[in-house]
């Protein structure tokens, strides 16, 4: 992921200093010569992207930060500057915004912790056999990927009617064998199942496809060598597949983490935040604050905090895997 080979020459000196493992093919002189021109060149090449990045990513982020420092309703004449008050409120127990916000952060955290390991492990378990060549594998791949093309509204209503403890399909099946359905939609801990299970069913195929692509990149020869050494298929998985997939694995964990932290539709439709407001996600709370109560200032402050949390987690993850890579 470090991408040392493509380092522009302007930073070549520093790069060399840091990459002490010294991949010998990066010859300083060879890199320096074409860029004797100007350090601006790289930025000129980047310019088209930078324009879009500034316009659609950087500017909205900065504008969002600016909004978070105000009592901001875009339709009201007064948008008083309040400094960090929106943030202070969020960290003051008992304020209008802090209780609901941290409760929703907690719900998002629970969902993320429950869903991410399963959303990484299960697609991998499915991808390994489906990477082999056998008749009908495209059929299986297609079937597993299929739910991913559905919208969240569709899968939400579908699972709601499957899981409803009184009028749902599952309840009716259980009833026939004399069992009661658990309160999937209204009581803890069942509600978490009603959020996590449909999410796995829905998005498993996406991670599977990424793993399939990653598996193709692992050289056959490594497996052959391992076999020669008498490694069992589990040992091959443990010592060839997993290390070979490391960069892909890091990528999958990161995007799954971010996607899970953006939970909205499932709890909006399947559990409707029940019981009480226990399964309301952070995004639901942010949307309600900003787009229903039109308090864009505190809503933007909530977004910022959520972003910082996710940035922090992602950085910890990325740096921990980089260290291992350097071993």
């Amino acid at each position: 992921m470090a991408g040392t080979a493509t380092a522009p020459a302007s930073t070549g000196g520093r790069r060399r200093g840091r990459d002490t493992d010294g991949s010998s093919d990066v010859v300083p002189g060879a890199v320096r010569s074409p860029t004797a021109a100007s350090p601006v060149t790289a930025y000129l090449f980047l310019a088209p992207y930078l324009v879009l990045f500034t316009l659609f990513v950087l500017a909205p982020i900065l504008y969002g930060l600016w909004i978070s420092l105000h009592d901001w309703d875009f339709l009201l004449p007064g948008k008083p500057f309040v400094g960090l008050q929106n943030y202070v409120d969020l960290f003051t127990p008992g304020s209008v915004t802090s209780g609901p916000f941290w409760a929703s952060m907690r719900a998002t955290a629970i969902f993320t912790v429950l869903s991410v390991p399963l959303l990484v492990a299960l697609p991998l378990l499915v991808a390994v056999p489906l990477a082999r060549k056998f008749p009908g594998r495209n059929f299986f791949r297609a079937i597993i990927f299929a739910p991913y093309v559905l919208g969240v509204a569709v899968i939400g209503i579908l699972w709601r009617y499957l899981l409803d403890p009184n009028v749902g399909v599952l309840a009716s099946v259980l009833d026939r064998v004399g069992l009661d359905s658990p309160p999937w939609l209204t009581d803890t801990p069942w509600v978490w199942g009603a959020l996590v299970i449909p999410t796995i069913w829905w998005t498993l195929g996406y991670n599977m496809v990424i793993f399939l692509a990653g598996l193709q990149d692992i050289s056959r020869e490594l497996y052959e060598a391992a076999e020669m050494d008498g490694a069992s298929s589990f040992q091959q998985f443990r010592n060839v597949t997993l290390p070979g997939l490391r960069p892909v694995l890091v990528f999958v964990v990161t995007i799954t983490l971010l996607a899970s932290a953006n939970l909205f539709g499932q709890s909006y439709i399947i559990t409707q935040g029940q019981p009480g407001r226990e399964t309301r996600s952070a995004i639901m709370q942010i949307a309600e604050e900003g787009l229903a109560r039109f308090n864009m200032g505190s809503s933007a402050a909530m977004s910022t905090i959520l972003t910082l949390c996710l940035l922090l987690i992602s950085l910890v993850m990325l740096s921990s895997t980089r260290e291992r890579g350097a071993k």
Partner: peptide
């Protein structure tokens, strides 16, 4: 809401809402 769970990926994902909010202004 026609939300795709992966509609916004990457490190800036959580800023989606912030951006949406600011776009309103």
């Amino acid at each position: 809401l026609p939300l795709s769970r992966r509609g916004v990926l990457g490190m800036g994902a959580a800023l989606g809402v912030g951006a949406a909010v600011s776009a309103c202004g």
